[in-house]
Write a protein that binds this DNA or RNA. Structure first.
Lengths: 129, 129
DNA sequence: CTATCTGTTATACACTATATATAACACGAA
DNA sequence: TTCGTGTTATATATAGTGTATAACAGATAG
């Protein structure tokens, strides 16, 4: 299955859907032009309300990953977003794995990594033109 | 100041407090045995209710970073948690910075990195004995 | 002993995010 | 027409977060 939802996660369901699809795009599992399930179909498949799926789709649309065509459906959008995500995933997957492995060994919580990343984002985005 | 709180952040205040202190420990700014401000004092300093500070302290205690002594105060705890966090921070700070820099260049959202990290945690923790 | 400073507990309240439920609407396609 | 899209509108429930106020319990300094 493309998406697996963890209902006990602290991460909202609509975010899990969104990130799952982004990962699918980045990994090549979802190609340009591919149709996504309708909000009702996907909702039924993963046991979630259609509005929750719709929220994820709207978010993906605003980020340029998908294209929503009223009355027709939603489709993976050709563009830089997918390409960039894919290239980033390939370039950074292994280094990131090493870092996480080190963190687990040292019993450093994932929340600490999240915060380090947020710090770096704030710092680097602030300095870049 | 040790802690700076962003009230507009999506990250809860008590988490910002917690992570700020963990970072302080990891960077050596907070040493073993150092006293932390009382819940009321810190709350007043950063403009936050004492219960919010207390929540952060309880979390840090449960993780082994600090020791709470009723009627006396809270102190940085000697132990492996701080040492491990410090060593991890030193070892992984630069590689992580490179990854985040790459992500920003490719306009990959921080949430995607968060999810990649969570995936790796789940994957690596599951396989390790 | 008294006063003060600790963390702790208990209650209540407000606000926001998340998620569901139901129904109806608008539009393209078969 | 009929069906399947996404969309909009309401209402409701739940959980997390944060504040406010008050009182309690214990260590320490005067």
């Amino acid at each position: 299955m493309l998406l697996s939802i963890d209902f006990g996660s602290d991460q909202p369901i609509y975010m899990q859907i969104r990130n799952g699809i982004v990962t699918g795009i980045a990994s090549g599992q979802l190609q340009d032009g591919d149709a996504l399930p309708s909000v009702r179909t996907l909702g039924a498949e993963i046991g979630v309300n259609l509005h929750t799926v719709n929220k994820a789709y709207k978010l993906l649309q605003s980020e340029g990953f998908i294209e929503i065509q009223r009355s027709r459906g939603t489709f993976i959008k050709a563009g830089n977003a997918a390409k960039n995500a894919a290239e980033f995933l390939q370039a950074s997957g292994d280094p990131l794995r090493a870092i996480v492995s080190e963190a687990i060994t040292r019993r450093v919580d994932r929340a600490v990594l999240h915060q380090m990343i947020d710090h770096l984002y704030d710092e680097l985005e602030g300095n870049e033109p």
